[in-house]
């Protein structure tokens, strides 16, 4: 038995009896990809769960107004993107600290997390990604890790393709600099 496609899920969601069942299938279908993105943005597993939960709550509340000329996945991804950016901003405001302090906290979380299976170079790459400003980090994550097209990223972020290309180019250069810089902290 094949999984129902998005159009079928949305049609079922709009029926009174199938609403909850269809939404459950939508969560099951997209939770892994969205978790991957949110986790790369937020780093902490518990906070990632909370953000992902908010993403689906917002989706539940807004799915009635979802226009089918957009892709369901892109729409969900846009909510995840916005929620992650909001979370990082709230974290900075909540701690009354600078962006550097937030990066430091995220790095500590990464180093102490048991839910990170990457080797030394993956850890170093993730630390470099964390140093990017949140919006640039989102663009880099979508382009580099998720291998999305610029058109799709543009639909999610609401940024022009030219600006996205420029942002990605800058992010890649920054990360390369971080990766080639001698490690001063003696972290593994």
């Amino acid at each position: 038995m094949t999984d129902p496609d998005d159009a079928e899920l949305l049609a079922r969601f709009r029926t009174e009896d199938g609403r909850h069942y269809a939404f459950n299938l939508i969560v099951r279908k997209y939770q892994r990809r969205l978790y991957g993105f949110v986790r790369r943005m937020v780093t902490d597993p518990d906070e990632s769960q909370d953000v992902l939960q908010n993403v689906f709550l917002k989706a539940w509340n807004g799915l009635d107004r979802f226009r089918e000329d957009a892709q369901l996945f892109s729409w969900l991804y846009r909510i995840a993107h916005n929620e992650s950016i909001t979370h990082l901003g709230r974290m900075r405001r909540g701690l009354f600290v600078s962006s550097d302090s937030v990066i430091e906290r995220l790095t500590t979380t990464l180093d102490s997390s048991e839910h990170f299976s990457g080797d030394v170079i993956q850890r170093k790459l993730q630390r470099a990604v964390m140093k990017l400003p949140p919006k640039q980090r989102a663009v880099f994550t979508m382009k580099y890790f998720e291998e999305m097209k610029y058109e799709q990223i543009s639909g999610i972020t609401g940024t022009s393709i030219g600006a996205l290309k420029s942002s990605y180019h800058i992010a890649v250069k920054k990360i390369e600099e971080e990766l080639t810089r001698p490690d001063q902290t003696n972290r593994p």
């Binding site: 459950n24 790369r40 990457g118």
Partner: peptide, 27 residues
């Protein structure tokens, strides 16, 4: 970015045990 380009892409972040089994119920 030759260093970045030489790093294999993988998914190093691991979700907690049975997270994806329980998450839809939680939602």
């Amino acid at each position: 970015a030759p260093t970045l380009g030489g790093i294999p892409k993988c998914a190093p972040f691991v979700a907690p045990d049975a997270f994806f089994a329980h998450f839809p119920h939680r939602v």
